[in-house]
Amino acid sequence: MSTAEPGTAQERMIGRLPTSVALKVLTSGVLAGYEPMPGPERLRRSADFSGGAIPGGEAEPIRLLCDEAMRRFRDESPTASDAWLAPRLHYTLRITRAEAADSGLWNFLAMCVAPDFVRWRWGKDTEGDRRAVGQAVRFAGPWHSQCFSRLWWAAELFRDGPDYGPVEIACRNQDVLNTVLRQELVLHRPAAQALVHLLQSRVTTTGREVNGLAKLAYAASATMIYEVLASDDPQDADELQDWIDAIGDAVEAPYDRLPDGPDDGRVDKGSISTLVEWFERLAAVAPVRGKEILAESEAPRPEGVSLAKTGPGL
């Protein structure tokens, strides 16, 4: 691990912070807000800046986005900031999926760049001015739980080529972020777009219903290959790489309208409508239990799954 020399460019760079280091720091006292988080300087010394995995990736624009989010949604529930932040985070932090798969990056953002944002977004006010974060996974955890990583992946999986519109719709819905995001259905872009279409077009469709639909679709996908029914062309990897490489020249993410994502190919409209019809049919023919799944109003399953969970001893 390289040591950061103060005052150098490295101070402004995004690095990778090992999960073991993050978890060592994230004691229950720190999470509950009793104890301070060690300063970013200390953590930066444990971070890895080598390899140029995110060339030119600077921390400052991310920091500014977090500040703006906290300002904008000061008077609303922090949850509402997800739909605003997800596309802009994706736009600003230009990385490939392979780079995004490294949890060290997300640990770094949460611990070294914007720990206050994580605390704002996931904390609860408790007595004595403390803001307690229930789970360490919001700082360092699986991709679908970590504060920033879940937003980036939501944007990546729900964007329609350069169009972040569907991302906004999907991220307005915590059921989508908490549950549907993890379902393998959304790995097929036409399916992800079809779900967004349902969320948007049918007022009655709730996030839970979409959730249930994804479950039914998974059961049906054992015999029905929706990838063949509704095909998707591979994305244009060169376009994506050009977009990533253009980060230095790119304008900052606009705050009041959506930025443009990489123009690596839109999803075929025909494929989307095929799957919209398919979902509608699934909902229509669902037997009693299927209907129950669609209507189930039980609370989203507890976010208790993580490597970091410090449960009672086994």
């Binding site: 479950k215 039914l216 059961a219 049906a220 054992a222 015999t223 029905m224 699934l282 023919v285 669902a286 037997p287 009693v288 239990r289 299927g290 799944i293």
Partner: peptide, 13 residues
Amino acid sequence: DVASHPVPAAMSR
């Protein structure tokens, strides 16, 4: 029990 099927049996494995 058909009532417990999430999707019609013809779609299931």
